[in-house]
Nucleic acid binder design. Structure first.
Length: 576
RNA sequence: CGGGGUGUAGCGCAGCCUGGUAGCGCGUCUGCUUCGGGAGCAGAAGGUCGGGAGUUCGAAUCUCCCCACCCCGACCA
């Protein structure tokens, strides 16, 4: 490709509104442009990267035994009603009507469509297992699109669906897909972790998320320093404290705490550590009532865990001030478990506290030296909190660390949720009809591009992992328009690299060298070769890898061989 | 949806408080010079000041309504 003929439009300044590094660099390097909130056009350089990511995903899917197919993005409502998800999926499902007023949606995922296809095509256990995948645009009407293509409303996903007669077979395909996902991340040169995860609106019994580690990640993941245990913080169980609850010490006491509402204010006012303060959160109950959740002041409520408790409404919602007053007889900030006429769940750690501080259920007052059993009836114990760094690993080996991650992939063992709801049955060896058991496996292709940048950049721009760079080699001729010598050197080199199958770009634009250097670095091309009269006098070029601090001399007559070797090595380095 | 913020030339911004009909930098176009790290000089094009209504002799500026976009929270690849 000759840059003079290529649509490359880089920006010196960062467009307003871009917050995270990948979004800034994707705009500056001219990979994408925003159309509307959460909707992006991909420009030619961006598409080059996208296609390379897709190619790697395809290769690994084929290696894992999956077969590519393609399903419609527009889906009839009837299928979603069959699976009960027309109502359950909520406003994230973009609904529309055709000219006959029939209901449709834009596919946010394809379990319904693929299950419909499977029940028509798959009739015998002899056809199983199958694993179908597609790479296609998805649409989710996100509450808040964010961070450029990282959380877009329309995005490209690779989604795969497998069908099996029994769960053992599902488990084998799941393991192969787990391996395939790890290979994809590895080939992209990304530092990642596979973690146990919640299944959310997709459903099923077992799932893992693949997280690219980055401080800008929206998820928190917990992993053990003593084993390979790793889980999304949403999912990681907080073990009950090993030590038994201490015996009550001092007598119960009521303390006036005027206008002291928050844990921070309370710890300062009373000089008590947050771990000795219990906070009582009032949330909406299933029956329209309310439920109280008690956790330690230094702990964070885990909404996913809480909404699974009997009697608690899902999705979890905090009770408003009016509901709190009705239940506790005081405003939020002074609620406590003593004398509270609500069902109470207490977190294991809260339950292990003695002589603790809590709200008195009256304005401007708290109780100190409160003890379970003595002052408050023993509540029901539950795991209500997020794990914290230093907590023991749930598998009993080591302690947990917390890291931020970008969820680029998620795999599920769905089981028979969809096949039973939609009647996807096959005949088994005994001639009996059985619902198939299913797995589904998603990778955010567009998100992978952004995640790769989050892990690979410097002050000059993107530093692509070599397998997905838009071009492998950039040839940068100095004063090419005037210099016969430079042209005579660079044109054959360009042709030879093309002939050798190298993804090479020739920066033949009539612009000053500084512009070329800045653009090539912003774009993150892994290998750069400068061709100038200065070096050519000695038969030499200058080579510089994107990550290298300095250039090195490259004899002109060795250039093709050298670059081909570098490119192959760069890509091979990432192949597991 | 709740809270906060921003909309002025392709991009980044000033002007708004204190009304008088729009400016800076970058980019774009033309010419000359320059040509190994985002060039210099000279000239040029480009704006219903997000939209509508109102106040006023007069509105980018004041008032009201609407819209879009961004950020913080609940969702997910």
């Amino acid at each position: 490709m000759r840059l003079s003929e290529y649509s490359l439009n880089t920006l010196k300044e960062v467009p307003a509104g871009a917050e995270i590094i990948s979004h800034k660099l994707m705009l500056r390097a001219g990979l994408v442009r925003q159309l509307a909130s959460g909707l992006y056009s991909w420009l030619p350089v961006g598409v080059r990267v996208l296609r390379k990511v897709e190619a790697i995903v395809r290769e690994e899917m084929e290696r894992a035994g999956a077969q590519e197919m393609l399903m419609p993005m527009v889906q009839p409502a009837e299928l979603w009603r069959e699976s009960q998800r027309w109502d359950a999926f909520g406003p994230e499902l973009l609904r529309l009507k055709d000219r006959h007023q029939r209901d449709f949606c834009l596919g946010p995922t394809h379990e319904e469509v693929v299950t419909d296809l499977a029940r028509r095509e798959l009739k015998s256990y002899r056809q199983l297992p199958v694993n179908w995948y597609q790479i296609q645009s998805k649409f989710r009407d996100e509450i808040r699109p964010r961070f450029g293509v990282m959380r877009a409303r329309e995005f490209i996903m690779k989604d795969a669906y497998s069908f099996h007669l029994d769960d053992a077979c599902l488990g084998r395909t799941y393991a192969r897909m787990h391996e395939a996902y790890a290979r994809v991340c590895g080939r992209l040169g990304l530092a990642f972790r596979a973690v146990e995860a919640e299944t959310g609106s997709i459903g099923g019994n077992l799932s893992h998320e693949f997280h690219v580690l980055a401080d800008s990640g929206e998820d928190a993941i917990a992993f053990s320093d003593g084993s390979d245990y790793a889980a999304n913080v949403e999912k990681a169980p907080a073990l009950p404290p090993a030590e038994p609850r201490p015996a009550p010490g001092r007598p119960l006491e009521r303390v006036a705490t005027p206008a002291v509402r928050t844990i921070a204010q309370l710890t300062e006012f009373l000089g008590v550590p947050a771990a000795r303060v219990l906070k009582t959160l009032v949330v909406l109950g299933e029956d329209g009532g309310a439920v109280a959740l008690v956790i330690r002041g230094d702990h964070e409520l885990n909404a996913v865990k809480a909404e699974k408790l009997p009697g608690v409404a899902a999705p979890l919602r905090m009770a408003g001030p009016d509901a709190v007053s009705a239940a506790a007889g005081c405003e939020p900030g002074f609620v406590g478990p003593r004398g509270l006429g609500l069902k109470i769940y207490a977190d294991h750690a809260a339950l292990a506290a003695a002589d603790f501080v809590c709200g008195a259920n009256e304005v401007d007052a708290h109780l100190v030296s409160v003890n379970w059993g003595r002052d408050v009836p023993e509540p029901e114990a539950a795991d209500l909190r997020n794990v914290q760094p230093g907590d023991p690993s749930p598998d009993g080996k080591g302690r947990l660390n917390i890291a931020r991650g970008i969820e680029v992939g998620h795999i599920f063992q769905l089981g028979r949720k969809y096949s039973e709801a939609m009647g996807a049955l096959v005949l088994d060896a005994d001639g009996r009809e059985q619902p198939m058991t299913m797995g589904c496996y998603g990778i955010g292709v567009t998100r992978l591009v952004a995640a790769a940048i989050e892990q690979n950049f410097d002050e000059r721009g993107i530093v692509w992992p070599e397998p997905i760079a838009p071009f492998q080699v950039a040839l940068v001729p100095m004063n090419m328009q005037k210099s016969e010598v430079v042209r005579a050197a660079v044109e054959p080199l360009y042709a030879a690299l093309l002939a050798a199958g190298v993804d090479v770009v020739l920066d033949d634009r009539d612009v000053r060298p500084g512009v070329k250097f800045a653009d090539i670095e912003l774009l993150g091309i892994p290998h750069r070769v400068v061709v100038g009269e200065r070096g050519l006098a000695d038969g030499a070029l200058e080579y510089r890898a994107r990550r290298a601090a300095d250039s090195e001399v490259l004899p002109l007559d060795e250039a093709v061989e050298f670059l081909v070797a570098r490119v192959h090595a760069g890509i091979a380095r990432h192949s597991p």
